[in-house]
Amino acid sequence: MKVLLNGEFIQLPEEIVSVSDLLKHYEIHDKVVVVEVNGEILISENHQSTRLSDKDRIEIVHFVGGG
């Protein structure tokens, strides 16, 4: 499927079904990240159960230094 991931159109491999799969694919599943799919913000407990679809808009954010 093709998704809009952090502002870029990305063709995802077929084995990626859930948000958890996506985080593992990018090797960021151990990091503190927050995922938003089509405007809906997910808590980490819902990463496994949230399935991705073609044309999803996905945002992955994290904490950076700031004042």
Binding site: I28, V61, H62, F63, G66, G67
Partner: peptide, 16 residues
Amino acid sequence: TFAVRRMNIFEPSQPN
């Protein structure tokens, strides 16, 4: 304090 920003997922090894 921290800021919230898009993650550079294509370079996940960047220190945080």
